[in-house]
């Protein structure tokens, strides 16, 4: 560890930007379609919610990426590396915002706390929605990329029927987790420029600071939009849209059917993408 001190430190900095940061930008852009998808005119929105449709298309696009699993494993590896080293580095310091209340010092401490929180959030997020640890999801919803919006909304709300108390907690956790990660990324971009020696003078550091604030603000809007968008989504209505996208006739009892379909999809992944537009 001591021999490769420099390499490890710089890899820690680098992984925060590529791939993790880059993924975060894409992920939040995709997810925030749950709000701005309403303006997506490239999708035929006759009779259904464009937001759900756009999001579903995006998810499907991603799911069709070649070597998706390799990309995922790389990402998980990078997150694990960044987190483990991050915790090790963070515990080597000792915050002192009580005595030295400078803005940069507050950000130093926040960077560490958002790192811890963000890590917990990512683990929960991946475990429940990707690895299928549905016992951690209130209501037991399991996410399906075929019913991306509806299952996500159900996971956030604690089930298909309105908000449960635990659902509120999950939504809040998402809100905090996303907020933490966006801050962590934007502030990390700012410090990385010093670490690598890109911004040397105070003026340059200030300028880059404004740029990072703008990037952070943009991502924050996207992140909050995503969380609010999904938490506010009625899973049942979303399901109707998704089913119609898959070419299935939505019924009034769509909910029950959807559930059975869900089971079958898990069973053998037999659903045809017949409803696809292309």
């Amino acid at each position: 560890m001591e021999r490769h001190h420099f390499l490890l430190r710089r890899l820690h900095s680098l992984t925060g930007i590529v791939p993790i940061g880059l993924f975060l930008v894409m992920h939040l852009t995709t997810n925030s379609t749950i709000l701005w998808g309403a303006f997506n005119t490239r999708i035929d929105g006759e009779g259904f919610d464009r937001r759900v449709g756009t999001f579903q298309k995006e998810v499907e696009f991603i799911n069709e990426l070649p070597l998706l699993l390799l990309i995922e494993i790389t990402l998980w590896g990078a997150i694990a590396f960044h987190s483990v080293l991050g915790v090790y580095y963070a515990t080597s310091g000792k915050g002192n915002t009580g005595a030295y209340r400078y803005q940069s010092n507050l950000r130093y401490s926040l960077q560490r706390w958002t790192g811890y929180l963000g890590f917990l959030f990512i683990v929960y997020h991946i475990a429940t929605l990707r690895w299928g640890w549905s016992f951690l999801v209130p209501g037991g919803t399991e996410w399906s990329h075929h019913f991306a919006a509806s299952t996500l909304a159900a996971a956030l709300r604690g089930g298909d029927e309105g908000f449960t108390a635990l659902g509120v907690a999950v939504s809040l956790f998402y809100f905090l987790g996303v907020t933490a990660l966006v801050f962590h990324f934007a502030n990390g971009l700012w410090t990385a420029a010093i670490t690598w020696g890109l911004t040397v003078t105070v003026t340059a550091q200030k300028r880059w600071g404004y740029a990072c604030t703008a990037i952070g603000a943009g991502l924050m809007v996207a992140g909050w939009a995503s969380v609010v968008g999904f938490a506010a989504l009625d899973p049942a209505e979303a399901r109707q849209v998704e089913m119609s996208l898959h070419g299935e006739v939505p019924t009034d009892g769509g909910e029950a059917e959807a559930r059975s379909m869900d089971v079958s999809s898990r069973g053998g992944d037999t659903i045809e993408h017949s409803g696809g537009q292309h």
Binding site: H5, F6, R9, R10, Y89, S92, G93, N96, Y100, Y102, S104, N105, R107, Y108, S109, Q111, T191, I194, T195, W196, G197, T199, V200, T201, V202, Q205
Partner: peptide, 27 residues
């Protein structure tokens, strides 16, 4: 690389030395 960019150094330096610029320059 052990610097955490809290930048307290430059704020408390009695001689107003641009310590954070030194850190970045050395970076």
């Amino acid at each position: 690389s052990d610097c955490g960019n809290a930048q307290n150094c430059v704020n408390v330096c009695p001689k107003e030395i641009p310590l954070t610029e030194s850190i970045a320059a050395i970076g």
